[in-house]
Design a protein around this nucleic acid. Structure first.
Length: 284
DNA sequence: ACTACGTCCTGCTTGC
DNA sequence: TGCAAGCAGGACGTAG
């Protein structure tokens, strides 16, 4: 599941392999990925065709490619989206949804099995697409404001895990890194933001940065010149996870088995000893 | 204004 | 063996 580190790996791949190219043709092979482009697939293709790609940008889990028209191709990988750079002759992937032919030896392909991802042209969005103006800066952004984050967290009645997943408060954090960061900070996800000490917020933010930087260090080597891959496979998952997916495994700090609970139609993993439930929370 | 939940998708895994 | 249910989950719309 692509979270910030995986998306950043993709951004770097796009920066090296498609920036500077001109799009010579666009094939939208399925309507689903352009569902957020209100004017439809044909309009999407028309706005991109003939345009030169000037950059590869990211905020949180969103990517965008500024075009020489002043517009931008805005994309989100969802759960399973991939940006692949392939020779034009390579066989189509099973879940190939959009093809961008370029004026170079490779073409850019958007492939997405579960189709939660999407692409749209953001009108005038080269600098920062208006569609993602509500998305907060991410914790690796040099302009991320730690104090503002702390203030906002400590005004919220929601649990800290829910807050970490709120992309308008902090972007780029998904279910996996939220659990890992909370484990590092020794905080239970149900702890209400407004009941956290400033030092708790500092700890969890440090935890978020630590897991992301660690994943980025490992994931950054997982693609080569031909294949800009992302599928939730940063190489980080199998080796370094302390909480997520570790149900029944001993906590590496204290040995207590990691517990899994249902949360927002998904799962949360935590150490019940290191991360005790807040007294007032229901036993979910 | 703020919070919480259901929905969209497909394919792999699990269980009867 | 075969089929159905369960699970994975980011972001958004809507209900409360």
């Amino acid at each position: 599941m692509p979270e910030l580190p995986e998306v950043e790996v993709v951004r770097r791949g796009l920066e090296s392999h498609v920036v500077g190219r001109t799009v010579t043709d666009v094939d939208v092979l399925h309507p689903r990925p352009v569902r957020r482009h209100a004017a439809g697939a044909a309009d999407f293709a028309a706005l991109v065709t003939g345009r030169r790609i000037l950059g590869a940008c990211r905020r949180g889990k969103y990517l965008w490619l500024p075009l020489d028209s002043g517009d931008a191709v805005l994309g989100h990988l969802g759960m399973s989206g991939q940006m692949l750079v392939q020779p034009p002759g390579a066989p189509d992937e099973r879940h190939l949804l959009v093809r961008f032919r370029l004026d170079g030896p490779r073409e850019l392909r958007f492939v997405d099995q579960r189709m939660f991802g999407g692409l749209a042209v953001s009108s005038g969005g080269a600098e920062l697409p208006a569609e993602i103006a509500h998305i907060a800066r991410d914790p690796l952004d040099p302009e991320f404001d730690d104090d503002l984050f702390s203030v906002r967290v400590r005004k919220k009645s929601s649990g800290i895990k829910r807050i970490l997943l709120d992309q308008t408060v902090i972007s780029g954090v998904g279910n996996i890194y939220a659990d890992e960061a909370l484990w590092l900070a020794r905080l239970h996800g149900d702890r209400a933001g407004r009941r956290l000490r400033r030092a708790d917020v500092t700890e969890v933010l440090a935890g978020v940065r630590a897991v992301m930087q660690s994943a980025l260090a490992q994931g950054g080597t997982s693609f080569d010149a031909l294949y800009v891959n992302i599928n939730g496979e940063s190489g980080y998952f199998d080796r370094s996870l302390q909480a997520y997916g570790q149900e029944g495994e001993p906590c590496s700090r204290c040995g207590t088995p990691i517990t899994r609970v249902s949360f927002m139609n998904r799962s949360s993993y935590f150490c019940p000893t290191c991360q005790p439930r807040p007294r007032r929370s229901r036993a979910r």
